[in-house]
Nucleic acid binder design. Structure first.
Lengths: 334, 334
DNA sequence: CTGTTAGCGCGTTCAG
DNA sequence: CTGAACGCGCTAACAG
């Protein structure tokens, strides 16, 4: 447990000199520096990063709080964050929001252990975030909209995405449009649903309550929802699933029942997850660039830390990705 | 950026008193404590965790270094770690090993920012780990075996797993057993292969070199290996794939060639990844309990920190998971 | 029993 | 190249 003092003593210099030498500051004579470095090696000296951070009052590290470290969080998003921070020489550490408010999440948020945080954890209470607002501590929230202009939001335009997906089906001539949604309290889901409703409204199509189903955002949920839909008798001609996972499940259910996709029924998802392009037929979907979200979040945090920005909100557009699971409606009246 | 000093000043007490009050130490009179707490609230005081850690020389946080924060790392394992640390009131932060040795990984390892680390990142150089060995800093390595008795290893018994899988096929009457392996330098793969060879030997079955193939641990690799196997003419009656990914690929290849699994050919994998149970037929495989590994790792680190243990190594057993991709060999000679 | 003084942990950095 | 202050909170020892 050698400290810089030990190194200095062994090298026969002052602590300050040792510090300069160890940080390769040129004001130290090469000879001396070498002696210091050797002493450090001999003693197996390792700097105490905590002391350093304390003194410099910065950590050059950003924290990201995710719902569950063990869950499949958005990997593209994480990659975007990582890549961007790396170019700015910032480190990244992640923690999960589980465990009440004595967790690492609150350490990140309240105890200055990181220079800024990115939050992607629905279960983290609003209050905890709001309480953590303070000068010069950028907080980027990706999973909700909070009422504070010290918080920067990066969100996806879920409403438009839902609208786009629905409008696409309508454009193909579909009028009987089911919606398989995610958890009802989920904000993203609500907005996608709003988009769906608005699109129907704008085309004067009446919403059919029995075609509004819940699939919990899971593959199994989508599967069951699709089964229910078929059991009801009056099947729709197209289905908009609020995420791709459910769409995959629903697709399976429809295919099992002998329906041909997209000939008999069109299906569109949301998210553009990886397998969407591999399943058969490849899934049409609405894409949100998670990499871009992550990268933007990281970029904003860097800016906030180094140049300063006003707490602005960013809403990223969604993009329709058309593959093979949607096609023109059959002419029923023909 | 209020500090404890400001709080003390506002409350009209000494800094030490403020500290006691904030930590709910009973030696401070309730009245005074209340004044302090109020002052803290007024000033929106938040303790500087870094200063605290520095003084106490411990962080009560464990770091886990994974290959890639954005990749699909073993989620069950992470859950095991999380659960266990939580019960001991330790925090967990994760970082990835990418980015050279100026990364957060080295901050974890060398700068005392965490009380201990768990490593699950093949790309992290051995030297970096070895350099980081020091008194009272537990390091648990899950992905390799290092030559230092200050390092604790938690590994899976890959040899036995390979043996089990092979023996299972032998028990079913198979004698023509192919092996589709992972990267040859990969330790896990080597051991699984050793297990395979040993099992053959113990049953006096000669190893057939043209049935030993390489699939790089990827689905595509497994697919190609299976194709090659079939092109060779003398197809085996059973295949042991060193991981499930390759087994999935191989299965696809065999099915495409019109083989019926398991009637025409038995196939067994390794890892028990999630999709193994969903594919058709569900894959028989060798399971390693990742949750258990994670939980054990966390437990060991806690013990090392609080009670002390000798750097011992732990090898966890594997378990055969029989599903539908293996069945009795056809009687060729009948 | 309550509150205060003072030193510590460790590295950084300014004035000399 | 060095001495000393500093960042901030903790805590042992002491005084009232």
């Amino acid at each position: 447990m050698a400290t810089i003092k030990d190194v200095a003593k062994l090298a026969g210099v002052a602590v300050s000199t040792a510090s300069y030498a160890l940080n390769h500051n040129s004001r130290v004579n090469a000879e001396t520096a070498k002696r210091v470095l050797e002493a450090a090696k001999t003693l197996n000296y390792q700097k105490n990063g905590i002391a350093r951070d304390l003194k410099r009052s910065k950590t050059e590290t950003i924290g990201i709080i995710v719902q569950d470290l063990s869950g499949p969080f958005y990997s593209e998003l994480m990659r975007g964050v990582q890549d961007t921070l790396l170019t700015h020489q910032y480190g990244l550490i992640a923690c999960s929001s589980i465990g009440g408010n004595v967790t690492t999440a609150s350490k990140f948020l309240q105890e200055r252990r990181v220079d800024g945080v990115i939050i992607l954890a629905e279960s983290l209470p609003d209050e905890l975030i709001l309480q953590s607002v303070r000068e010069d501590f950028p907080i980027i929230v990706l999973d909700r909209k909070l009422d504070s202009d010290s918080i920067i939001h990066v969100l996806v335009d879920n409403f438009s995405g839902g609208y786009q997906a629905t409008q696409h089906l309508i454009d193909l001539g579909h009028k009987d449009l089911a919606y398989i949604g995610g958890p009802s309290h989920n904000r993203d889901n609500q907005l996608r649903f709003e988009g769906y409703k608005q699109a129907l409204k704008d085309s004067c199509i009446t919403l059919h309550p029995s075609w509004i189903l819940q699939g919990q955002y899971t593959r199994e949920g989508g599967y069951s929802a699709a089964k229910i839909l078929m059991m009801q008798g009056n099947a729709p001609s197209a289905v908009f699933c609020a995420n791709d996972e459910m769409a995959v499940g629903a697709l399976k259910a429809f295919k099992e029942s002998g329906l041909h996709i997209p000939e008999d029924l069109s299906i569109i998802g949301f998210d553009d997850i990886e397998i969407s392009q591999y399943i058969s037929p490849p899934l049409s979907t609405v894409k949100q660039s998670n990499y871009e979200i992550g990268s933007l979040a990281a970029h904003l945090i860097y800016q906030a830390l180094n140049e300063g920005i006003e707490g602005k909100d960013y809403i990223l557009p969604t993009e329709l990705v058309l593959r093979k699971s949607t096609s023109a409606a059959k002419k029923m009246e023909a």
